[in-house]
Design a protein around this nucleic acid. Structure first.
Length: 332
DNA sequence: CGTCCACAGGAATAAGTGGCGT
DNA sequence: ACGCCACTTATTCCTGTGGACG
């Protein structure tokens, strides 16, 4: 029943982008000057996750490379590469000069190589708000050949921690806003994937609507649910996806993401996480007390606060209330 | 209504790690 | 073998903030 598994993968890039023409055009317009040999405008794509930002950015890079020889482009996921070295390394990778780069290569040399570039270079920095050290942004902005396309959930999260100069520069670049997809849009995106990769008629319109509803505007989640349901159907050698499989796939797709994140935690972080899960809702002070008693050599409170912000970044826990009335609770 | 305190998170610092060049 | 360089993690110190409480 799965004819082409690739179209259900996270990194699949459709040949045509639907429902995002306005954003496509704005980004294309910002980059357009490069065709005439001028400096393109930096761009900033903002919006909730799964709203098509990454997709549009990658798509635009592909179109640009198609049209124009002698422009380099590259995509960097700052979630996976969250420090200066890794970002610079990935950026250099895009122009194929990493053959003799290693951990202890001075940053100056890496930057020098970028400054020596002959051709314009467009870099997408996805999830830029996950960057631990923003110095690298300033460094990249200092290189005239490089045009950046930043992607983040919220503009303010990125701007907040930057100095004045960089802030004003970022404010003046082309900002393209994305909203979450509507249910109808999600259904049509899912229908496309079904058409390209699954047997026709193996899933009903009503089922796609159920999936779209559960995904709450997030296309990545929606496709994840569809993928999970299709895999189960295939494993049980059914020739269609049943309603029951869809219902099961909804929590499962979420659990998979959570599982992946929990695996990336250290043992101390996991203790905090399970304490929060057990309590359902817990005040910071109580949490630290219990943590101190739960482990042999407890870390300091400050370190735990760092752990907690990591748990929040991974979307495992959330905090509500400010100041003294703050409580942590698990997500979902 | 003002004070106090728990809490968040920035900055500086120290100890430990890993891979490289000499 | 050794020092270097940059990274990572944890810690100490500190400031700003908003709700609780007298």
């Amino acid at each position: 029943m799965i004819r082409d598994a690739r179209v259900l993968q996270d990194d699949f890039l459709p040949k045509e982008v639907v429902h995002r023409h306005a954003q496509m055009n704005r980004l294309a317009a910002a980059l357009e000057p490069v065709v005439e040999g001028d400096k393109p405008q930096d761009a900033f794509l903002v919006g909730p996750s799964g709203a098509g930002k990454t997709c549009i950015a990658r798509y635009s890079l592909d179109r640009l490379e198609e049209r124009l020889l002698g422009v380099d482009t590259h995509y960097v996921d700052c979630w996976q590469h969250s420090n200066r070295f890794r970002v610079l390394y990935k950026v250099l990778e895009g122009v194929g000069t990493t053959y003799d780069i290693h951990r202890s290569t001075p940053h100056d040399e890496m930057l020098q190589r970028l400054e020596d570039l002959e051709d314009p270079y467009v870099v997408v920095l996805d999830e830029v708000d996950q960057l631990e050290n923003r110095d690298v942004l300033r460094e990249l902005y200092g290189i005239p050949q490089i045009t950046t396309v930043l992607i983040a959930n919220r503009t303010e999260d990125v701007l907040r921690t930057l100095d004045e100069r960089l802030q004003s520069r970022l404010r003046s670049c082309e900002t393209v806003r994305f909203d979450a997809y509507t249910n109808d849009e999600l259904v049509s995106i899912l229908a496309d994937r079904v058409r390209w990769g699954l047997d026709p008629d193996c899933v009903t319109e009503a089922q796609l609507e159920t999936i779209a509803d559960a995904a709450a505007g997030n296309a990545r989640d929606a496709i994840g649910i569809l993928r999970s349901a299709a895999r189960h159907a295939e494993r049980s050698e059914a020739d269609a996806i049943t309603d029951e499989l869809v219902e099961r796939a909804i929590p499962e797709a979420r659990a998979q993401i959570r599982q992946k994140n929990v695996e990336r935690l250290t043992s101390h972080q996991r203790v905090l996480y399970s304490l929060i899960c057990d309590a359902g809702e817990i005040a910071p002070g109580t949490l630290y007390d219990r943590y101190e008693r739960a482990v042999d050599e407890p870390r300091t409170e400050r370190t735990c606060r760092n752990y907690l912000s990591k748990l929040r970044r991974y979307n495992l826990v959330a905090a509500s209330g400010e100041g003294r009335s703050r409580v942590y609770h698990p997500v979902e």
